[in-house]
Design a protein around this nucleic acid. Structure first.
Lengths: 247, 247
DNA sequence: CGGTTTGGTTTCATTGATTGAAACCAAGTT
DNA sequence: AACTTGGTTTCAATCAATGAAACCAAACCG
């Protein structure tokens, strides 16, 4: 069915790289386990990856992590490949359909960054500066990102010293669980007074979450009923975005 | 002398990826020429790279460009590998030595972004919010980034509709040339009234410029003489940064 | 048009790079 | 001291990777 003419060794090297979308730091044997490759094979591949600067070895832990070459390459990512641009038309369409502000967030450590936004055209609207950073734990988009993140990230969220004392972790986890099951999250004046939001996950080809798509507006207009109403549209938009990654 | 046990096929695949730090779009034969590999070899390697999403093919031009996988990976770059963090100690040292604000810029399209900064501790100082975007064409750091960029980028700068009419392109190019030769740039109230700055390039392992390191302060304190004076220190700091990328 | 060039794709035989098993080493546990 | 566990090296077998050449399609051109 599939499978062009492809080079196995290279394929495996890339697979190894992709392991680091699950864990920021990995040891040789961990990688061998994840990829189901022989230790020696992984060893040599790691050596090449390291030599070329795609991976670097953490001096103390002896483990590997992504290297600066990735950074270099990402700097050269032509802007039109950047999902922030790629998804723009889709986001505009959603904005026009719902007449509310639409934002795209990605996770960065224990924060999230708004990488793209199109604002509602209404006089009263949620403004959404691109580049803004917010906590990962709260807000519709934040919760979506959190709920589909790896357990490791989740742990870090919960053990974060910043964690608000007045929030029960058990209840929070239950909420994330519900979000994961139903495929969307909502928030009403959760992080910011006067605004409510709906958010859904956008998955990468690897099945991991890559971004959260959010619609937000004034609580008066974006009521609970209205939010329920728009969920399908938002999900569909996210699905169309995912399709764009396919080719 | 060098050369651990390394996998040739993987090495070549990575080499191909790195080609894209020179050109955003490349065809099969172009890549074959650049890497001095056989057409068939490149063909198969490209197929793998594409299948794994590290490259995508521009539908119209038929050429290849970096794919979203790079984006995905860069999102997982642990913050401590990020030069913005990696270079922080070096920048602080420079700040302490010169007692002026130190910033690090990278190019993004026809703009530049301040990805890291440490401010002078003096009462009167240049403030430097991280994340700020400025035009690429003007300012010490901007000119450094421009002068070491590829011809393609330079063309785009000059043909940009935003280009200020009152600036002679010929003179500008001559200035960039001088900057490239002497290895640093200065600016006095060029982009912002009351501030002057010195900037030097920071090169990646591939020899391409990856960032500009700038020292900026009030014109009164950072006079032309003072700037001349500090240039060596700034250059040395940049060199130490480059060394950090080596391992 | 027929002929030529250019870039991409496929075939195929040869071979040496890639591979896994196993041995080995160093450090840490029991 | 016996036993793990993770990393590194060795080595022989073989199969995956390779380059030359053929092939195809499209553009170019006289």
């Amino acid at each position: 069915m599939e499978g062009k003419k492809t080079v196995r060794a290279a394929e495996r090297a890339l697979d190894i790289l992709l392991c680091f979308t699950r864990q920021p730091e990995l040891s040789l044997t961990e990688i061998a386990r994840m990829t189901e490759l022989n230790k020696s094979t992984v060893f040599r591949l790691l050596a090449t990856l390291e030599e070329k600067g795609f991976l670097i070895r953490n001096a103390e832990t002896e483990k590997y992590r992504l290297g600066f070459r990735i950074w270099e390459l990402s700097a050269h990512l032509s802007r039109t490949d950047d999902p922030a641009i790629l998804f723009l038309p889709e986001m505009e369409q959603l904005r026009d359909q719902l007449e509310e502000t639409v934002s795209l967030y990605v996770r960065d450590g224990l924060e999230r960054v708004r990488v793209q936004a199109v604002e509602s055209l209404q006089a009263i609207r949620r403004v959404a500066p691109v580049g803004a950073r917010m906590p990962l734990a709260v807000g519709a988009a934040g919760k979506v990102l959190a709920s589909f993140s790896s357990p490791v990230v989740l742990d870090r969220i919960l053990s974060d010293p910043e964690w608000p004392e007045n929030v029960d972790q058990k209840a929070y986890l239950a909420q994330l669980d519900r979000i994961r099951r139903q495929g969307f999250a909502t928030s009403v004046e959760e992080r910011e007074a006067g605004t409510s939001a709906v958010a859904v996950p956008v998955f990468g080809q690897d099945g991991n979450i890559m971004a959260a798509l959010a619609v937000s507006g004034p609580v008066g207009r974006l009521t609970l009923e209205r939010m329920e109403e728009v969920v399908p549209s938002v999900i569909e938009a996210a699905e169309r975005m995912q399709k764009m990654l396919k080719t």
